[in-house]
Design a protein around this nucleic acid. Structure first.
Lengths: 118, 118
DNA sequence: TCCATAATTCCACGATAATAGAACTATATG
DNA sequence: CATATAGTTCTATTATCGTGGAATTATGGA
């Protein structure tokens, strides 16, 4: 988990990851990322490698391009780790997270038993 | 936020922070931390400094000891940042978090029923 | 085959981080 | 005041990270 945190603890890589999360499961070609964020291709490649090695990205070749996509499961696990690790004895930390989840309106529970009240 | 992530992206510091979260708002003296985790005092001091500088710890002197305590608000903000940043367009990531929150049983909304699990 | 494009890998350099020994500051106590 | 304890700061050393230029691999098209 430290490796995963470390991968995100870098302004540039955090930006890359955010872009890829927004791009969705389809992902983006390395070149597109480089263009949008104005990063040198070799620097980008190094950072994509760090993120991939941390399990945060998946990639596959498509023609001449290599498509990178955020691994949603890995990110969920990371956040879950932080939440469980912190909540274990500290309700002050994760109690307000229910509000956050409600605010982003992305987690209306089908299986979860959180009240979508509001 | 990258600074905060970076502070936690270190095995030793993550362990220190976890210990302090479990210690609760009371916190622990630096010496106690050093003893429990078997870290050299100067190394510990350096790492406590990194965590403090990232806003994750608060400290105050008490007699000869210096008491460190986890800043719950900072941690909540960090997790909130990750959740909102990721959920923005990616329900796959934070939808399951409702389950996580329910599992740790620390974030039951004030309106819902409180289950004394564990 | 030849060329252009896409991306990576190699390599070198400077910057930053991690650790540990030694010295230092602050507090308490006799 | 002398001494012991608690932490920090100083300093040096080593390791790792981040970046960019140049060369390399892989693919597609004329």
């Amino acid at each position: 988990m430290a490796t995963r945190l470390s991968a995100l603890a870098h302004e540039g890589r955090l930006t890359i990851f955010r872009l890829l999360v927004r791009a969705g499961p389809t992902g983006l070609a390395a070149g597109d990322i480089a263009r949008q964020l104005e990063i040198l291709p070799n620097t980008l490649s190094a950072n994509l490698n760090v993120l991939s090695h941390a399990g945060l990205l998946a990639s596959h070749r498509q023609g001449r391009s290599i498509i990178y996509a955020a691994d949603f499961g890995a990110m969920r696990d990371l956040i879950g780790f932080l939440v469980e690790d912190c909540c274990d004895g500290a309700p002050e930390i994760c109690a307000p997270l229910g509000d956050v989840l409600a605010r982003v309106a992305c987690c209306v529970p089908s299986t979860a038993n959180l009240e979508p009240a509001r």
